[in-house]
Amino acid sequence: MSIEVIRARGLTRTYTLKSGPVHAVRGIDLTVQRGEILGFLGPNGAGKTTTLRMLVTLLPPTGGTVEIAGHDLLRDPAGVRRRIGYVAQSGGLDPACGVREELITQGRLHRLSKPEAAARAAELARDLALDDLMDRPTAALSGGQRRRLEIALGLVNRPEVLFLDEPTTGLDPGSRADLWALVRRIRAEHGTTVFLTTHYLDEADALADRIVVVDAGTVVAEGTPAGLKDRYTGDPGASLQDAFLAITGRTETDEPLAV
């Protein structure tokens, strides 16, 4: 039986400016099942980033309800934070710190004792192929190595839901392939739910069990990659980009497809 790990109903976010209100998110309904890899896509200005920031407790909703891993986003944001991992697009590594220090510090921030934090750092280093890098400063890491470390930091607290914001931006094809394999392994070995935003539609096609497309602050389509391609192009073997263009009514000459 499927179990909902994210449930949002009527999620909204309105910004009040001197020129008037700006409705960034206009009542999003969203359900994510435990162990699912969800691709969350949308063109520029669709409200995708605003939605993500609300779900990870960085931005309070204007309205609606959200429950993540059994905890209410508004009434218990600390409970939500204890059960999620978040890997931001820009990262947040201290170039003066070593890999081991970053991992142990993250463990301490999650209230692990020093021995527990060190043990968890060693465990993640083994799992994410960071063993040989533990004493290296983060400034000396390659792009792919940095991204593996940032994902390791997001896994320190053994989250039920891992939010990945544009995880492969700027990586070479080999490093992208390594990250795809890592995401699949995290889900397969630990049952972790993965909430993925990405610029790359081929990435969403390869990784996501299901895709949700938002535009103008609302959900405009959702389904499996093959299902969306079949529904919107008539060809399940078409590219996800073709389906995305049909869903959003854009052309290949418009602005970049995803935020």
Rank of each mutant, 00 (worst) to 15 (best):
R108C: 05
L109G: 05
R111L: 05
L112N: 02
S113I: 06
K114F: 10
P115V: 03
E116F: 09
A117S: 01
A117F: 04
A118W: 02
A119S: 14
A119E: 12
R120C: 06
A122Y: 00
A122D: 13
A122P: 01
E123V: 01
E123P: 08
E123M: 11
L124Q: 03
A125E: 05
R126K: 13
R126E: 15
R126F: 03
A129W: 14
A129F: 14
A129H: 15
D132C: 00
L133Q: 03
M134Q: 07
M134L: 14
D135A: 07
D135P: 04
R136E: 00
P137L: 05
T138A: 15
T138H: 06
T138G: 09
A139P: 00
A140W: 00
G143R: 01
G144L: 05
G144H: 03
R146V: 08
R147I: 02
R147H: 08
R147E: 05
L149H: 04
E150W: 04
E150H: 06
L153T: 07
L155P: 13
L155W: 10
V156N: 07
N157T: 04
P159H: 08
E160T: 06
V161A: 04
F163H: 01
G170L: 10
L171M: 10
D172G: 07
D172Q: 06
D172L: 07
P173K: 03
A177L: 14
A177P: 12
D178C: 01
D178A: 14
V183L: 11
R184Q: 14
R184V: 10
R184W: 06
R184P: 12
R184F: 10
R185Y: 06
R187K: 15
A188C: 12
E189Q: 15
H190D: 12
H190I: 01
T192H: 14
T193A: 08
F195Q: 07
Y200P: 15
Y200E: 10
L201R: 03
A206K: 13
A206Y: 13
D209V: 11
D209G: 08
I211H: 03
V214C: 01
A216F: 01
A216D: 05
T218P: 00
V219K: 09
V219C: 03
V220Y: 04
A221H: 09
G223D: 10
G223T: 14
P225E: 01
A226E: 11
K229A: 03
K229L: 05
K229E: 02
D230A: 15
D230W: 08
D230L: 14
D230S: 15
R231F: 08
Y232A: 03
Y232P: 02
T233R: 10
T233C: 13
G234I: 11
G234N: 06
P236I: 04
P236H: 03
P236S: 04
P236M: 07
G237F: 07
A238S: 15
S239W: 11
L240T: 04
L240Y: 05
L240A: 11
Q241I: 03
D242N: 09
A243H: 05
A243Y: 00
F244G: 10
I247D: 00
I247H: 05
I247K: 02
G249S: 13
G249C: 11
T251L: 10
T251M: 13
T253S: 15
T253Y: 13
D254T: 09
